[in-house]
Design a protein around this nucleic acid. Structure first.
Lengths: 352, 352
DNA sequence: CACTCACGTGGATACGTTTTCAAGCATCTC
DNA sequence: GAGATGCTTGAAAACGTATCCACGTGAGTG
């Protein structure tokens, strides 16, 4: 457990000043002769610059933070893998937090990251603009992934991202809004949901339900738009994020509206709940009810029948978000929307 | 984006020295009067001590590192959630790395953590003792979770943990071995596998296969022990960790040995592969082949039939590991073995 | 040849904190 | 009343690095 060599040791051994060593190792200019000598000595001493000293000097911790609601949710696992892959190839550390979907815990974790001087953050937000204000105010480079913060009445965090999205969606030009500069990496929920609904429509389904969870606002909106007015509000139900509540929501939906013939689950936890609830109520998939689930996960294929899903590239989303947050210089990065794909397996059939 | 207040600002505003502020905030002794004043000023200035300064001073980063092979594997997701839960309640950051089961990446990540001066680490190891030597040598407090490093010929990292385990298993007293002080948090693989094999035996199965992956050494050993000699070596096959290789292993197993009537999958990825391969080969579960899978995961219930599993408390394991690594003082913590439970669902039937 | 300019270099400083140390002061003891 | 004892306190040093700045040297230009 010997003490690690410091820059001072290297400087001494190489017969140069610490400034020179620092320059050589950070890619600054130096004469080829000294550069070579310094590098040789550094290698020989097995010198590795301490992140502590550097961080303090630069008043910022390298790497990035990552906040997700729940690592048990396979989609967030994929997202995290993407982020980690990018961070690893950049040699940057990532400090992870799991919010449990609770804005309060999220706020705590943001505070912790602030304390650590982590100034780059990728987040699947659970709180609203107020929760995110401290991070923005502190000058953090924040990138939202998978979703945007819920809109609170008088704030507009994410407004810039929304503007980006509208442009990308080919909607009306972004309204004049004070941009708060929080870009996002999202899946094309709108197209994904629309495709799924059309697919179900094509199979003859008319009473299609949406089973959502927290953060699925954009998906519900897309669902409403795809179904067209008037929307049967009883067919749009929500869980709170836990598996239990998802199950309760699904079960309740099936029981109060036995006339529904198809359901779109807004996430894999909801999809899981729908399968379970249907089985419990002796509803056969797809004979009695068709099911399409947002998120493609390995076990979707294991179900009987295998689940038809709206696949979103979780890993890519994480990777892209990490790229954005790392490359973010003076210029604020643009938001990104990644395509979804309807993967047709066996959980949807014609309306009987 | 105003500059954050430093301890100096607080000291000045409170009319005391910085040392006093530091003492008050770190729970040192101070007169009630000054303590109150300092706290008031600190609150008013919204002062939060910078982890950077503290870390540099103490030459160590707080919190802990966490290294897992793959967050896409639900079990490691559960494990990570446990670690994060404990860390969150302690207010400590955790920097996460995903090794992909590759010793080389693992070594890189260890190096990165060393550079960050992270001196506490929870790991599901992929490399051998040699990979872990740098961490140990640097004085890191390491706790292994879920498995131990593979034994390399001339080293004995984990020997201490093994000694602990033998004691816990009620085996012979630990042999005299130079302890390398790497404790572990493991599931009782031995009992879990034994119970599963006995269960299958009770159903009449005689040709039972084991489908393993990297890091399943203890499980294979337990399987061999439970099955009793002579072990039919063709019935013990391994994947390399990826889903593809797991599928290949499972499919190969089913095809080369159509006479087997039951299989024990060493992890949830392997179990998934077994279900898929069986379906592809038109083998019905449990009519043609019985299946029990290590790891309980939410989707085990979704399968048709629902999977009989050996449940291990992934979340608890993570939480316990985090507790151990945080509480680790001068005294090296003891290893912990957590119980498993055979959860009987519908994937096992009598031998036909 | 004098002057400028570019470049390589090292000393010094600052980053924000914890901890050591000695000094100041009040209380207690003989 | 003098000395010992305990507590509170602040100045200063240290942690390891990056960067500013000033200095010296060599080449290039008039």
């Amino acid at each position: 457990m010997e003490r690690r060599a410091t820059i001072k040791d290297v400087a001494e051994a190489a017969g140069v000043g610490v400034a020179t060593v620092s320059r050589v190792l950070s890619g600054g200019s130096a004469s080829p002769a000294t550069r070579e000598r310094v590098l040789a000595v550094a290698a020989q001493l097995d010198y590795r610059p301490s992140a502590l000293g550097r961080n303090l000097r630069q008043r910022r911790t390298g790497g990035m933070g990552l906040l997700v609601p729940d690592l048990t949710d396979t989609f967030y696992g994929q997202l995290a893998e993407g982020v980690l892959a990018c961070a690893r190839s950049a040699g940057e550390p990532v400090v992870l937090g799991s919010t449990g979907g609770d804005p309060e815990q999220e706020a705590d974790l943001i505070g912790m990251l602030l304390e650590q001087s982590v100034d780059r953050l990728i987040a699947v937000p659970s709180g609203d603009a107020e929760t995110w204000a401290p991070a923005i105010r502190a000058g953090m480079t924040v990138i939202f992934a998978d979703r945007l913060p819920v809109q609170s009445s008088h704030e507009d965090v994410g407004a810039a991202a929304i503007a980006d999205l509208m442009a990308l969606d080919g909607l009306s030009p972004a309204p004049q809004t004070r941009p708060l500069d929080v870009p996002a990496v999202l899946a094309d929920d709108r197209a994904g949901i629309r495709t799924a609904v059309r697919y179900l429509r094509g199979l003859g389904h008319r009473r299609i339900a949406f089973l959502g969870g927290p953060g699925h606002d954009r998906r519900v909106a897309a669902f409403r738009e795809a179904v067209g007015s008037p929307v049967d509000e009883e067919l749009v139900v929500f869980g709170t994020g836990s598996r239990d509540s998802a199950y309760a929501a699904a079960s309740g939906l099936f029981q109060t509206r036995p006339d529904l013939s198809a359901v779109v689950a807004g996430g894999n936890v909801l999809g899981e709940a729908a399968v379970l609830a249907a089985r419990e109520l002796d509803l056969r998939v797809p004979r009695d009810v068709s099911l399409v689930m947002y998120d493609d996960v390995p076990w979707a294929e294991l179900c009987a029948p295998p689940l038809t899903v709206i696949a979103q590239p979780g890993r890519d989303m994480g990777y892209r978000a990490a790229e954005l947050v790392l490359r973010a210089g003076a210029r604020r990065p643009r938001s990104v929307i990644l395509p979804t794909e309807l993967v047709i397996r066996g959980s949807c059939g014609p309306r009987r």
